[in-house]
């Protein structure tokens, strides 16, 4: 979707099904999106929309009861066809992950330094003094004060924000081309969150790492993303540059998400607008708009025909039969 060459990551028609005790569940339904080098793309949606599953599917991290189809092209390679050991070599080195729970994502019995050293040794065969130097450098990069001392400390001696910084340092250890950050700030309080976002923002500038940011927090998106991919019930429903999306949302769901963000500046009646209902759990891909049941604009077409992701009135792709016209977004009800 961006001009110039092949993107770093190109996901085509990614579909993920889970076999569960309650029958099959379709978690991701033909998702397609791209991430260019050095770009920060936000994958947005509410809980259960398939955004985390999409991220895990990139390098085959899903449990065995998942069936994945489609294509994940990374640097020209189709990862879906790579062997388990080839994927293992890519994880952490080319595509690194940062997860939501900094409190539990670090091994409690190993020092921070040891854990960073593990990653360096695993992928770069770096040991001893050079590994230590690199670890200090990494902690410094993510803004941890007194890095040399922190290396000798155990995770429980660090605060949540410091642990998340350490997680990011580990993820950056091998200068990956893509950093997948799955709700990296959700478990942290707001001031700490701002610090972590700062780190992520400067990071792409300093190291040239592309970031795929998975979040439900549009505040975070506005803060650091270049481009936004909105997911709903396993489908990509809208994709746009961040300013474009905030100014001219095309999908009623995106609009709903934006309206649900607390915004002191437009607190005219003091209340937040919410989207009625919740994300459906689907067994198969319906020939309909998956948002129709919660949408005020839905009509009979929406319930029997599947909308495609096509350029909408605002110019960017929207999966909706009745996309919002750009002017509508400017009005206040």
């Amino acid at each position: 979707m961006r001009p110039g060459g092949e993107p770093l990551l190109a996901v085509r028609d990614l579909t993920v099904r889970f076999r569960t005790e309650d029958g099959p569940v379709l978690a991701v339904d033909g998702a397609s999106f791209e991430v260019a080098g050095q770009e920060t793309v936000a994958l947005v949606g509410e809980s259960g929309c398939g955004k985390s599953v999409t991220a895990m599917a990139l390098t085959g991290l899903l449990p065995p009861n998942a069936t994945v189809s489609g294509e994940v092209r990374f640097g020209g390679d189709n990862l879906q066809q790579r062997s388990r050991s080839a994927l293992r070599a890519i994880r952490g080195r080319e595509i690194a992950y940062v997860f939501q729970e900094p409190m539990t994502s670090l091994n409690p019995v190993l020092t921070i330094g040891r854990q960073i050293a593990e990653v360096l040794h695993r992928h770069q065969r770096l040991r001893g003094a050079p590994a230590r130097r690199r670890a200090v450098e990494l902690l410094d990069l993510v803004g941890i004060p007194l890095p040399a001392r922190r290396l000798r400390e155990y995770p429980h001696q660090l605060s949540g924000g410091m642990r998340q910084r350490a997680m990011i340092a580990m993820a950056l250890a091998c200068t990956p081309k893509l950093l997948v950050a799955d709700e990296p700030t959700t478990a942290l309080d707001v001031t700490v969150q701002a610090g972590i976002l700062d780190v992520l923002r400067t990071l792409s500038a300093e190291t040239g790492t592309a970031v795929l940011l998975i979040t439900h927090d549009l505040g975070v998106v506005a803060d650091i993303a270049d481009r936004v991919v909105v997911m709903y019930a396993g489908r990509v429903i809208e994709e746009a540059d961040v300013d474009d999306l905030f100014a001219r949302p095309g999908h009623p769901y995106t609009r709903g998400l934006l309206d649900a963000v607390p915004n002191p500046a437009r607190r005219s009646d003091g209340s937040l607008r919410e989207i009625p209902g919740r994300v459906p759990v689907l067994a198969s891909s319906p020939d309909a708009c998956t948002f129709a049941d919660r949408c005020s604009r839905a009509d009979s077409t929406c319930r029997v025909h599947r909308p495609e992701l096509v350029p909408g009135p605002a110019g960017h792709p929207v999966r909706c039969w009745h996309p919002l016209a750009p002017v509508v977004a400017g009005e206040r009800r």
């Binding site: 991290l61 293992r88 670090l106």
Partner: peptide
């Protein structure tokens, strides 16, 4: 899970 995502065998 984090170690798996970091490429640990």
């Amino acid at each position: 899970a984090a170690a798996v995502a970091d490429g640990a065998d």
